[in-house]
Structures are given as structure tokens and as C-alpha cells.
């Protein structure tokens, strides 16, 4: 078996991130100290989640326009793995917050927004498990995916930026991009996002292939 190029790229980039993320030079900051390196691990979880949800959204639309059940299974796989990454992002964020903001949960607007977004996507899992008929399930979960994705945008990108927040880049706080994120960190952060995202896409593809076999066994034998 030969690995596709983007799978190899994901392996290379994740290892690059692990090595240079831990060994590379970072700016010295009060309170943050070395935890600034979490930028390479905590933040890409959210980028990966957003991109996986985007894939799920696109496949949901493609399902509705074609009624091809494969698109439904793809959409569901991307949503499920996206949820795994959102949980990882949330837990790692709370761990980071414990040692910088002083407590794991400080009712930060971005924390609340993502928590709401996660609840909406958890409901997707419940909804999908609750419907036995495969066509009905596919149609309802595609519509729900579009609804959930359209709610995620304001909850994560818009609302937290309109109020004061502990997160950089929100309210009066400057983002890492403004002057914290220097060029050395940028050289690791962007490959980190691509690497972790490709890993997430790889896992989703495995999930989809498993579900497709499961589906074929259930309905065609």
C-alpha cells in the first residue's frame, strides 16, 4: 500500500510541530512563560475542528442536492471527528487556563461560545442515533448540519469578539497576530495547523470507510 501524499505530509508536519514546537525559540512573556508553546497544540485543535465541520457542511449540501448516501456518511464522519477535536481543544484549553488565567473555567465569552457550539453538535449525535430509517436520518442530519454550522460561525467568530475576553484577539486584547506572534513562531504555527488538520481529515476518512462497510452490510445483504 502506498500512502497518499497528504497523509505523508501530515506525518511530516506533525513531527515537525512536535520537534520544533518544543525545541524552537519563543518570546519570553510574563505569566505565559513556556506555555506559549501550547499555541502549536491547543489552537490547531480548533482550526482542525472548524475545517472538519466545514467539510461536513459541504457534504451535507451535496447530499441534499444528490441524495447520494455516501455524502451523508462522509458528512457524519467529518462531524464526529470534528467533535472529538472540539473536546480535545476544550480540555487542553482548560488545562492551559488553569496555569495562566488561574482557573479552568472563567466564563470567558469564547469559552461559553464554544461550549454552546459543542452542545449543538452533541445534539447532532443524539439526533442521528435516534432515527432508524436511513434516508430520513440522512436528510434530517444534513439539514441539522447546515443549521449547526451556521450557528457555529457567530458563536465562535463574531460574538466573542464583541465583548471583553481573556482570549487574545478579542475585545480590547491584541491577538497573537498583532505583535506577540513573531516570525519564528509563525514558521511553526502555520505548518502545525496544516499538519493537525490533515491528521483529522485522515482519521475522518477511516471513520467514513468503516461506516460505509457497515452501511453496505446492513442494507444490502
Amino acid at each position: 500500500m502506498r500512502l497518499r501524499w497528504w497523509k505523508l505530509l501530515s506525518i511530516v508536519l506533525v513531527f515537525y510541530t512536535l520537534y520544533f514546537g518544543l525545541m524552537g525559540e519563543v518570546p519570553s512573556k510574563d505569566i505565559l512563560n513556556e506555555t506559549i508553546r501550547n499555541l502549536y497544540y491547543h489552537v490547531p485543535m480548533w482550526f482542525c475542528m472548524i475545517l472538519l465541520f466545514t467539510y461536513a457542511f459541504v457534504y451535507a449540501i451535496r447530499y441534499l442536492s444528490s441524495n447520494n448516501i455516501q455524502y451523508d456518511l462522509k458528512s457524519a464522519a467529518f462531524n464526529k471527528v470534528g467533535i472529538v477535536f472540539s473536546v480535545l481543544g476544550m480540555i487542553t484549553g482548560m488545562e492551559w487556563a488553569t496555569y495562566t488565567w488561574g482557573e479552568p473555567w472563567s466564563n470567558d465569552p469564547k469559552q461559553l461560545g464554544t461550549a454552546l457550539c459543542m452542545l449543538i453538535y452533541f445534539a447532532y449525535l443524539v439526533l442521528r442515533n435516534g432515527i432508524k430509517d436511513d434516508e430520513k436520518r440522512a436528510k434530517i442530519s444534513a439539514v441539522y448540519t447546515i443549521f449547526a454550522f451556521s450557528l457555529m460561525i457567530p458563536l465562535i467568530f463574531v460574538l466573542p469578539r464583541m465583548v471583553d475576553s481573556l482570549h487574545p484577539g478579542n475585545g480590547g486584547n491584541p491577538g497573537f497576530n498583532a505583535y506577540d506572534l513573531d516570525n519564528r513562531m509563525r514558521m511553526i504555527f502555520y505548518p502545525a495547523v496544516i499538519g493537525w488538520f490533515l491528521l483529522g481529515k485522515w482519521i475522518s476518512e477511516l471513520k467514513y470507510r468503516t461506516d460505509l462497510i457497515d452501511y453496505k452490510k446492513l442494507y444490502h445483504e
Binding site: L18, L22, L32, N33, E34, T35, R37, N38, Y41, H42, M45, V81, V84, V87, L88, I91, T92, E95, W96, T98, Y99, T100, I203
Partner: peptide, 20 residues
């Protein structure tokens, strides 16, 4: 310099991926 927080975060990520 709180480097163990980074270790904790990495351990969480890998634990989560392995559970999946």
C-alpha cells in the same frame, strides 16, 4: 517556566486520539 503544562496538553491530545 510551566513547561509541564505543554506536556500535559500534548498528553491529553494523544490520549484523546488513542481513545478514538
Amino acid at each position: 517556566g510551566k513547561i509541564y503544562v505543554v506536556v500535559l496538553v500534548l498528553a491529553t491530545i494523544f490520549a484523546g486520539l488513542f481513545i478514538f
